[in-house]
């Protein structure tokens, strides 16, 4: 079943059109990779799906589980199962990570009409997931992302993804700034989340990541459009011949 359907999406920022009629369908259980050169609109697409303010949608639609996503506030989208792992996660000083996780987790449950999880239960759950991702306990006591290394920030994103159990995970350049070991831990974390009722979309510039997270479908973006889609071999093709070949297509 189609989990996410982006149809002919046109998006402007400050009067300038950045996505010029982009279409994309992601089914449950699939892993998609979106590749493309810098400035092709990958982050813009992820932001618009998650509901970041400041973008003007001038045409097209986004359906998520059949509902109009563009009608919903970002927190409603999150509660409905949209998760975006940021390329540059922000720091929130003074807000202890563990408290942040619990507040967010319970806010989502509440929005879905589920009961909130009590502290001891939640703590146990977080510890489990954190251990799997090699996240030290003391990181959870620090301010959200404050003083975290690049790798720790990314792992903190994946930790949240694992906790919230979203149906759609979008990861924007999760490989940027990670060394090979950190990349492997993060990728293992993502692979562990593969599930028949969940889709994962990895946005990346490089094919390297796709050695660790193997996609079912690869899309190439250029100048605000998806210009080619194919199987995982498309990524290798790109690695060999570069993005330049798509300039004309765009």
């Amino acid at each position: 079943m189609a989990l996410l359907e982006v149809k002919d999406l046109q998006v402007r920022v400050d009067e300038r059109e950045i996505l010029h009629g982009l279409s994309l369908t992601v089914n449950e259980g699939e892993i998609h990779a979106i590749m493309g050169p810098n400035g092709s609109g990958k982050s813009t697409l992820s932001h618009v799906i998650a509901g970041k303010p400041g973008y003007e949608v001038t045409g097209g639609e986004i359906l998520f589980k059949g509902d109009d996503l563009l009608e919903m506030a970002p927190d409603e989208r999150a509660a409905k199962g949209v998760f975006l792992a940021f390329q540059y996660p922000v720091e929130i000083p003074g807000v202890v990570t563990m408290n942040f996780l619990r507040t967010a987790y319970n806010a989502q449950r509440k929005a879905r009409g589920e009961t909130e999880l009590m502290a001891p239960e939640f703590l146990k759950k977080v510890r489990e997931v954190a251990k799997r991702l090699s996240i030290p306990q003391d990181m959870l006591k620090r301010g959200v992302n404050v003083g975290f290394s690049g790798g720790e920030k990314k792992r903190n994103e994946i930790l949240q993804m694992a906790l919230f159990e979203p149906s759609l995970c979008i990861l924007d350049e999760m490989d940027s700034g990670l060394d090979i070991d950190a990349l492997r831990i993060a990728a293992d974390g993502v692979n562990a989340l593969r599930a028949p009722d969940r889709a994962i979309v990895v946005i990346t510039h490089y094919q390297r990541l796709l050695n660790y997270i193997v996609p079912d479908v690869v899309h190439v973006m250029s100048k605000g459009r998806v210009v080619k889609s194919g199987g995982k071999e498309l990524a290798l093709e790109l690695e060999a011949s570069g993005y330049a070949q798509f300039d004309d297509a765009a």
Partner: peptide, 11 residues
Amino acid sequence: VLFYCTQRGLS
């Protein structure tokens, strides 16, 4: 920061 928090489900 606000978008980060709302993306995680907070109003």
